[in-house]
Design a protein around this nucleic acid. Structure first.
Lengths: 254, 254
DNA sequence: GCTATGTGGAGAAATTTTCTCCACATAGCT
DNA sequence: AGCTATGTGGAGAAAATTTCTCCACATAGC
């Protein structure tokens, strides 16, 4: 309740001066890690129990460390944005070719699941509040890479910042159907590679990127559909609504 | 797929022989339309009130027509898959160029929000149950378009069925942050155009597609971030934890 | 050892969502 | 126009889910 924005050094990413016990700190990190996963999977309103469970701590521990959901959001956002900024700078610094730098960064950002933190960010905190805990917001290095790539004719001119970032955010979200189509992460990387190829200018000499990851052809697709049915039978016991063509006595407990 | 469509007349998309009153039928359609929207926005577990509200009917009417959530899922799935199949056949029939046919279909499928129905499908019904109500499952016409496009050298060889469909499914999902970045639909179409360009083979003579839709450059992005804050203050009254300090502390990282 | 700090989990409280009931409305027929 | 089978809305009880507190117990660190 009481204002505790930036005067409060405690809830920041890693309070170095904290008199926090070692095990407590470890737990805090576990919670943030779990929160990131769960928010990515289920969105920012995911039940907190789930997060505590995945972190291997009791619910009370979570509440002690992050009294309000918003603080958990903030913690995750800071962590991810920090990593994102670093990934961008690293890619730019270590890859000579700005096209490759951009590609490398985009794949790294995908792995960071940045999309998972955006919902937590948006509409809950002021940007300033988040950024207060983050060294840099990654915008500058990303845009620099893009401009360099365009200057060298590696990326078409009509592409802008949002075309890089917003697609990554999208690819970060789980596919409907709970990753049944493919290991999900792998699939997103494959799709990203196609997308990145789409950023090249007309007649670019650079060859298309060989596509890794799961190639789901019609056969695979049909097979998956069937596997889905199996899953439905086994995992969800939510079922007896089966094959009742008549609207009759089926009851769906769910 | 094997089960024929016509045996089960009652719960089908539009039972023609039904003794249903005209207004009831109209309401049923409103409900399905609303359900499609809401499922697309909020996922398959969205509250049913919301659907009833958007359909402009009472909750009782919804329950009367679709006693279980699963039946609503099925109804929506049938509707969308039917439209999808038709869109695929139309695109293939009306566009001479298989590349254009594919593009047209993909944009049409995006508008249908097919991703919104997949979660409803997966793990709740057997495929047969759904397909029993659908004239065709769209797989064949889509794959035919793809193969023709590849035969003419318009699409790279390593692209498969899933690369067409699963990306559309993804683009169908709402962007985190509730479409604050852009009208959302428009943005998805822009992203789809880039992706489609990425499907071209190396050195394709075909020019890149001019990008319509919202071009979010860094300036726009930052402006959006600010607008988001405003929204947060005005729309969400959820801010008990609003520790918004002063407006200060602008650490501009760029 | 001693104790400040940290922990888990039960369960009460709050919130959200489901689903029924019934008095009232009207489409469709004659 | 009048009749009635069919259809409707919404209140609110019931169920499910989620939040959040309390306190007896554990252990890191001195």
């Amino acid at each position: 309740m009481s204002a505790d924005a930036e005067t409060d050094t405690e809830t920041l990413a890693d309070a170095p001066s904290s008199p926090m016990r070692a095990d407590a700190r470890r737990n805090r990190e576990q919670i943030l890690r779990a929160a990131r996963e769960v928010f990515a999977d289920q969105g920012p309103d995911a039940p907190l129990d789930e997060i505590a469970r995945r972190a291997g701590v009791g619910i009370a521990t979570l509440y002690r460390r992050f009294p309000h959901r918003a603080e958990l959001h903030r913690g995750v956002a800071i962590e991810v944005l920090t990593a994102l900024d670093e990934a961008a700078r690293r890619a730019a610094a270590e890859e000579g070719d700005p096209g490759l730098a951009l590609r490398r960064f985009m794949h790294a950002a995908l792995d960071l699941k940045i999309g998972s933190v955006m919902p937590a960010l948006l509409g809950r905190f002021t940007v300033d509040e988040i950024l207060a805990g983050v060294p840099g917001d990654a915008i500058a290095p990303i845009d620099a890479m893009l401009l360099r790539a365009q200057a060298q004719g590696l990326v078409r001119r009509d592409v802008v910042f949002g075309d890089i970032t917003l697609m990554i955010i999208r690819l970060t979200r789980p596919l409907p159907g709970g990753g049944r189509f493919a290991p999900d992460d792998t699939l997103a990387h494959r799709q990203l590679d196609v997308y990145i190829d789409g950023l090249r200018p007309t007649g670019s000499p650079r060859p298309t990127t060989p596509l890794g990851g799961p190639a789901i052809d019609t056969e695979a697709f049909k097979r998956i559909r069937e596997r889905v049915i199996d899953d439905a039978h086994t995992t969800h016991e939510t079922h007896e609504a089966h094959d009742g063509p008549g609207p009759g006595a089926d009851s769906d407990p769910a």
